[in-house]
Amino acid sequence: MKQLITGGARSGKSALAQARALEWQQQTDGKVVVIATATAEGQEMAQRIAHHQSRRPNSWQLLEAPRNLGDLLAKHSQPNTLIMVDCLTLWLSNELFGGDWPMAKEALLDALPGLPGPLILIGNEVGQGVVPLGEGNRRFVDECGWLQQHLSPLMDRVTLTLAGLPLELKECS
Rank of each mutant, 00 (worst) to 15 (best):
M1D: 12
I5N: 00
G7V: 05
R10H: 06
G12F: 00
G12L: 03
K13C: 06
S14H: 02
A21D: 04
D29N: 10
V32I: 08
I35M: 08
A38W: 05
T39Q: 15
A40E: 09
M45Y: 11
Q47C: 04
R48H: 05
H51Q: 13
S54E: 10
R55E: 12
R56S: 09
Q61D: 12
L63H: 02
A65T: 06
N68L: 04
N68V: 00
H76K: 03
S77G: 08
N80H: 13
M84L: 14
D86Y: 06
L90T: 15
W91T: 05
L92S: 07
E95V: 09
D100G: 15
M103P: 09
E106C: 12
L108D: 04
D110P: 13
A111F: 01
G114E: 10
E125Q: 06
G127T: 07
V130M: 14
G136A: 15
N137K: 13
R138G: 06
R139F: 02
F140E: 09
C144L: 10
Q148G: 08
Q148C: 04
H150K: 15
L151I: 05
L151T: 07
L154D: 02
M155F: 07
D156Q: 12
T159V: 15
L162T: 14
G164D: 08
P166I: 04
L167M: 08
